[in-house]
Design a protein around this nucleic acid. Structure first.
Lengths: 152, 152
DNA sequence: CCTTGAGTTGAAGTGCGCTTCAACTCCGAG
DNA sequence: CTCGGAGTTGAAGCGCACTTCAACTCAAGG
């Protein structure tokens, strides 16, 4: 009881993430696991934190690849300290702030567009997400929606 | 010569949405087009507004299916008036407000968690998927509680 | 030892939001 | 009338984030 490591089922239960997803994360290099003699995964408890970070980041709209890159900034040799995590979280916080700001702008623009009836026009600030984001965000690439790269 | 209707290429140029996407939207019932004798699509200019609404909504993280439902609330008989659009936009505005609120909460929680080191714990408000901050990105995924016979 | 439930793998499937392709038609300028 | 770019279709493919499946092994209780 309360052992040093977790089975995949235990990690799944505690994190709320399906085992299949955890295996998938591992394949992508987002989390790690040791193996028992019988080849079963055993997770260090710190992996719980990584999984939490992954899910939280996803809620902010970050892709797994980007999350992988972020996690790669954690020290590989030692167990990450609270400071290590704080550094990551700060970066995400900026992302959140920027995202909140953009949504606020979108909302205000939407209000404006209700009044002016310009909803269909490109010149409307609502309708040029790329420019609007690039023009103002020092935080760089934010919430470009899914549409393909050459939707031009 | 500023004609009454637009070809798919014209609509694509003016809306910034690829023709293939426009056909896809039509298949899903998000936009409509008349046909020429030769079976080519001709779009009423009001479709521009629908397309704009679609793209804006996607930025807020709404799925095409939900957008379809929203658009279905527009009057089918007549051309939607500014008031019709305003009603839709108001609903979206609420959505934006809610989303902004959730992101703010996420940010504050993240701050709190940096301090308390609870990033890995379920009791952390960050980690409660119930809020379904659906994020944008590839298809709004709900963080479904794991399917399966947990209860069984 | 036997059984049972949890875990293992690679491969294939799913859903969304499209894009690409092949094969064909339309339409307007010359 | 010819030509070529724009348009048409259904079917297939893609990228992401997973899930499901089949076939198998492991681990622990009786």
């Amino acid at each position: 009881m309360h052992e040093a490591t977790l089975t995949i089922g235990q990690l799944a239960d505690r994190s709320g993430v399906a085992p299949s997803a955890l295996r998938y994360y591992e394949r992508l290099g987002l989390i790690r696991a040791e193996r028992t003699g019988g080849n079963q995964r055993r997770y260090a408890r710190t992996e719980l934190r990584r999984v939490a970070f992954i899910r939280i980041s996803q809620q902010v709209g970050v892709s797994l690849e980007e999350i992988r890159e972020a996690l790669a900034s954690l020290p590989s040799g030692r167990t990450p300290t609270p400071d290590d995590w704080a550094a990551l979280s700060r970066a995400w916080r900026n992302r959140l702030d920027e995202k909140i700001r953009l949504l606020g702008k979108l909302r205000d623009d939407l209000d404006g567009c209700i009044g002016c009836g310009c909803l269909s026009l490109q010149r409307c600030t609502l309708y040029n997400p790329g420019d609007a984001l690039a023009a103002e965000g020092s935080g760089a690439r934010l919430m470009l929606p899914r549409p393909g790269p050459d939707a031009a």
